[in-house]
Design a protein around this nucleic acid. Structure first.
Lengths: 156, 156
DNA sequence: TGCAAAATCATCCGAAAGAATGACGACATC
DNA sequence: GATGTCGTCATTCTTTCGGATGATTTTGCA
């Protein structure tokens, strides 16, 4: 997190420095301020959105488990069994929340690239998670992993 | 989402207008550009983070409902429609018996080669059946085909 | 605060999967 | 006998997957 703030400040400083530099050196057109403002606005808005997503993303997995519990309690006894074995099995197999998250997306028929886009991570990362999940499930293919996951009650 | 974009544009426009106005009316100090840039940067970064938070919050809400469905539907659906809609849906989609046979093996996690060996046919034949089945199911990947197949009650 | 576990990303490389075609024989139907 | 469907197989080419491995960053916890 400290790093983000640092980069944020750095980029800001650099941008301002650039602005100052170009102002004295290059084209000083009329109405340049608005142009710069717009540019800076767009740039930082984009960066801000990215930062916002990045910050909040981490909490999702935690919140997800909370949500599941909140949902399951009203659903009562019927829903309690399948998900109890769920996390238990997940624990014993050492499958992390992230891996399971990706596994569910695999089960829904998404490609690695699509999953990567959805989760705002690299395709390589998705592959890594997949590989680890497959290994823990003893699966050689994603279809096999999905099948195993359903058998074990890890996937709906 | 459209609303966000609208507000975004509105704020941007207002900001630029304000800048332009103040430039001609009020203090036009030296180094104003940097000040403005920084201000704009901070403003929009904040806005971006806020937007990011909003977006992700909505996503979580969606996920919540999805979880509910995932928990409730399969339990009842499995008990309600065992094999009735099966052949009917198969007919309407024009999926042949052979294609469905191969599809079930795909769903069990077998590779094309393994399926070919099991059925005493060429791997190319399996691929052809797969391709046709995928086409009829509107699936691009085998995992997607499996998912669709289960949704439609074609696969257990 | 420091450490272990997770998560992230990358690269190389081979295997599997899929798309697009074309073809051929068996069978049923009209 | 023409037509249509189905199952079979092949070739070529592109994309996607998956394995192996190493590295860095982030996070959660003692």
């Amino acid at each position: 997190m400290r790093r983000h703030v640092f980069i944020f400040g750095l980029v800001g400083g650099l941008l301002i420095a650039t602005l100052q530099y170009t102002e004295y050196r290059f084209v000083v057109i009329e109405h340049t301020v608005e142009l710069y403002s717009a540019l800076v606005a767009i740039l930082f808005a984009t960066f801000g959105i990215w930062l916002g997503l990045r910050i909040t993303r981490r909490r999702e997995t935690v919140r997800e488990t909370v949500v599941v519990r909140e949902v399951l309690v009203p659903a009562e006894a019927a829903a309690l069994e399948p998900f109890a074995a769920n996390t238990a099995r997940q624990q014993t197999l050492g499958i992390t929340a992230r891996e399971l998250e990706i596994l569910t997306l695999v089960a829904r028929g998404f490609s690695n690239r699509e999953i990567a886009t959805q989760l705002f991570v690299s395709e390589n990362t998705v592959k890594t998670h997949c590989a680890r999940a497959f290994d823990k499930l003893g699966a050689a293919r994603r279809t096999q992993a999905v099948q195993r996951g359903k058998e074990l009650g890890l996937l709906p």
